[in-house]
């Protein structure tokens, strides 16, 4: 069983992913059996499978680095349980860095 997820990276985050602004990926429905895949698993999965450089600019202390905004299906992940959110098939997840000059 796998889940199809759309990932997007912007605000400078794309630089860590070979300048790819988005990716359609298939991830296991349970990365950590028997638990269903959640955001925590997804973040590590991204680090291990997609990230091209400088993991410290993406992850800090097992979560995304402070200053990176995450949206799950167009909603602030702070309203969706953050790391505990269980990924569903067809989810649309956006990472935006705020750490760049304005």
């Amino acid at each position: 069983m796998s889940l199809k997820v759309k990932l997007s990276f912007s605000g400078g985050m794309e630089l860590l992913f070979n300048n790819n602004k988005s990716a359609e990926v298939k991830i296991p429905a349970s990365i950590n059996p028997p638990n269903p895949t959640n955001m925590q698993d997804l973040i590590f999965w991204i680090r291990d499978n997609l990230l091209k450089e400088r993991p410290g600019l993406f992850i800090s202390e097992n979560t995304v680095r402070p200053g990176i905004l995450v949206l799950i299906n167009e909603t602030d992940w702070e309203l969706e349980g953050e790391l505990d959110y269980e990924i569903k098939d067809g989810d649309d997840i956006v990472f935006i860095s705020t750490l760049h000059g304005g």
């Binding site: 605000g11 905004l69 949206l71 956006v94 705020t98 304005g102």
Partner: peptide, 10 residues
């Protein structure tokens, strides 16, 4: 807040 500026732009 920066977070709101970025969310607004998004």
């Amino acid at each position: 807040y920066e977070k709101e500026i970025v969310m607004y732009a998004y």
